[in-house]
Structures are given as structure tokens and as C-alpha cells.
């Protein structure tokens, strides 16, 4: 009973913090009908272009170049994703073959 209560509180605490990261900017900048400042509009336009690079590195944060595989599965799978996407412009196709190639490399080799 106590253990379950502990788990519930952990989920609530982490949920509350996560919700705060999503809503605090809205409370600061997005209230009412006042015009969003130019600077915020500018960030809204350019931040998405920086965010994908940030997310890609975030996904790859555990790669250890000095480790056993030297990050080769990641590099090869990323190359497959980029090249297939440039050729076909089809997101689901690139995600599926890139992920399949990666899974084979980390499981079999």
C-alpha cells in the first residue's frame, strides 16, 4: 500500500514538472489577446530548425565512440535514413528501413 502510494506520488510529481515545462511559457507570453512580441515570433520561426538537431543529438547521447561498436551502427543507420529520404522523400519508408538496419546491426553483429 505504502509502495503504491510512493509510486503514485512519483508519477504525479514528474507529471506536474513536465506539465509546467509545457505551460509556463504560455502563462508568461501567451495570455489574453495581446500581440505576441516580435522577438517571440522570431524564435517561433527559427527554433524549430535548431530543435531537430538538438533532438537528434539527444537521441544519440548514449553513443560511445570509444566503445565496442565505435558508434558505427548509428552512423550507418543515419546514412541510410538520410540517403533514402533524399531519394524518396518518404518519412515512413526511411524510418522503417533505417530502424530495421539498426536493429539488425545491434542484435546480430
Amino acid at each position: 500500500m505504502f509502495e503504491q502510494l510512493h509510486a503514485i506520488i512519483i508519477i504525479l510529481v514528474m507529471g506536474l514538472v513536465t506539465l509546467a515545462t509545457r505551460l509556463i511559457p504560455v502563462f508568461i507570453f501567451g495570455r489574453g489577446n495581446k500581440k505576441v512580441p516580435d522577438y517571440i515570433m522570431y524564435l517561433g520561426k527559427v527554433v524549430p530548425y535548431t530543435a531537430m538537431g538538438l533532438l537528434i543529438i539527444y537521441c544519440l547521447k548514449d553513443v560511445n565512440v570509444a566503445g565496442n561498436s565505435h558508434g558505427l551502427p548509428e552512423i550507418i543507420a543515419l546514412a541510410i535514413v538520410v540517403i533514402s529520404y533524399l531519394l524518396k522523400k518518404n518519412t515512413i519508408f526511411s524510418v522503417v528501413i533505417g530502424t530495421a538496419a539498426y536493429m539488425v546491426m545491434v542484435q546480430v553483429i
Partner: peptide, 19 residues
């Protein structure tokens, strides 16, 4: 399912290339 999480990386990479 080991390695399945690479799907997220692949997805972000596609968006990156398109952008």
C-alpha cells in the same frame, strides 16, 4: 525489440533533412 528506439532518431533526422 532491442534498437527499436532508433525509430525516434530516424524520424527527427527525416524532419531535419526536409527542413
Amino acid at each position: 525489440s532491442e534498437g527499436i528506439d532508433f525509430a525516434m532518431t530516424a524520424l527527427f533526422t527525416c524532419v531535419f533533412v526536409q527542413q
